[in-house]
């Protein structure tokens, strides 16, 4: 098992301890690991230090309150927390009144019944994916990282890196094809 896998397993164990026993020491470990990374993510998205700090604390509070919703069959701890941060950030931008119709909530319920991967499969996938990301050519990894974590559009990335728009798009596509190839998922 790789270092990534070991770490993810320990963090998943901590999440379970929070969910089942309200274990504050386990939460402290999760906080120490994830809070600074979540804040770094939110800073990259363009939030100022104050906003990023507040939203990070909100994200970690959600982790404390919703730990029982974490399902290791569906995602690694980092992915689950990435998803929460992603939602919090979207929510922060639209504090408008909500309509009553929330099919995405139902959708999540349905999706929960049938995980996309089996439990061992997701652990294996995570390890292979971690290796595949580290093996990406640096120029592809850079574009992928900016797209995911800095909230920049394709053309903003092109401007920032001084590249043609087509190059940015093809680098993202190539990177994803490579990741899928490594996982034996097929490129199509």
């Amino acid at each position: 098992m790789s270092a990534t896998g070991d770490l993810a397993d320990r963090l998943a164990e901590d999440l379970r301890a929070v969910a089942e026993r309200r274990d504050r020491r386990a939460f402290a470990r999760l906080f120490a690991h994830f809070a600074p990374r979540v804040k770094a993510y939110l800073r990259r998205l363009g939030l100022d230090d104050q906003q990023a700090e507040e939203l990070t604390q909100e994200v970690m509070l959600t982790v404390w309150e919703r730990a029982h919703q974490f399902d290791p069959q569906r995602a690694s701890p980092a992915t689950w927390i990435f998803t929460i941060a992603r939602h919090k950030r979207i929510d922060a931008f639209r504090r408008a009144p909500r309509a009553e119709f929330r099919p995405e909530e139902e959708a999540r319920e349905i999706a929960r019944e049938e995980p996309a991967y089996a439990e061992r499969e997701i652990a294996l996938l995570r390890d292979k994916l971690a290796q595949a990301i580290d093996a990406l050519p640096p120029e592809q990894a850079e574009v992928l990282r900016i797209y995911y974590l800095e909230g920049k559009s394709h053309s903003e990335i092109a401007d920032a890196l001084g590249l043609p728009l087509g190059t940015v798009k093809s680098r993202i596509r190539l990177a994803l094809e490579k990741l899928r190839e490594r996982l034996g998922e097929g490129a199509a």
């Binding site: 993510y41 980092a78 992915t79 990435f82 992603r86 994916l129 990301i133 974590l149």
Partner: peptide
């Protein structure tokens, strides 16, 4: 699921930002 995992792994690789 795979694309979300990529997000999680990239988050793991971020340089941590100091908290207030």
């Amino acid at each position: 699921a795979l694309l979300l995992e990529v997000g999680g792994l990239l988050l793991e690789r971020l340089e941590p930002a100091p908290l207030r």
